[in-house]
Simulated scan of single mutants.
Amino acid sequence: MTQSRMMSMIEAATNVVVGYVLAIATQIMVFPWFGIETGLAEHMTIGLVFVGVSLARGYLLRRVFETWRRF
């Protein structure tokens, strides 16, 4: 069974959303250990910078592996 492009995007988006929430929670806990003090808005902005990259990475890797699976 193959995975459609739409399902690849849904899977990648779900992975990114879960990762984003975990990243924000982790930043809130870890940043103070390194003397980095930021507010929630900054944490969310930092996280958003990586959302696009993570979404593209997840989608592209899924499509690469789906293509390789066919060979």
Rank of each mutant, 00 (worst) to 15 (best):
M1G: 12
M1S: 13
M1L: 11
M1Q: 09
M1R: 08
T2L: 13
Q3D: 06
Q3K: 11
Q3Y: 05
S4A: 14
S4W: 07
R5A: 15
M6K: 11
M6G: 08
M7G: 08
M7F: 04
S8L: 10
M9T: 03
I10Q: 08
E11W: 05
A12T: 05
A12H: 03
A12Y: 03
A13S: 13
A13W: 03
A13K: 02
N15L: 12
N15P: 03
V16E: 02
V17C: 04
G19T: 00
G19A: 05
G19L: 03
L22I: 07
L22R: 08
I24M: 02
I24K: 02
I24A: 15
T26R: 12
I28F: 05
M29P: 01
V30M: 14
F31H: 01
F31V: 01
F31N: 06
F31E: 04
P32M: 05
W33V: 05
F34N: 00
F34S: 02
G35Q: 10
G35H: 08
G35D: 08
I36E: 07
E37M: 13
E37L: 14
G39C: 08
A41T: 11
A41V: 10
E42W: 01
E42Q: 13
H43K: 09
M44E: 08
I46H: 00
I46P: 00
G47R: 01
G47Q: 01
L48I: 01
V51W: 01
G52T: 10
G52H: 03
V53M: 10
V53N: 09
S54G: 13
S54F: 07
S54A: 15
L55A: 09
L55Q: 01
A56V: 14
R57C: 07
G58F: 04
G58C: 07
Y59T: 11
L60E: 08
L61R: 11
R62L: 15
R63Q: 14
R63P: 04
V64G: 00
V64F: 09
F65R: 10
T67R: 14
W68M: 15
W68C: 14
W68K: 15
R69V: 01
R69D: 11
R70F: 07
F71V: 15
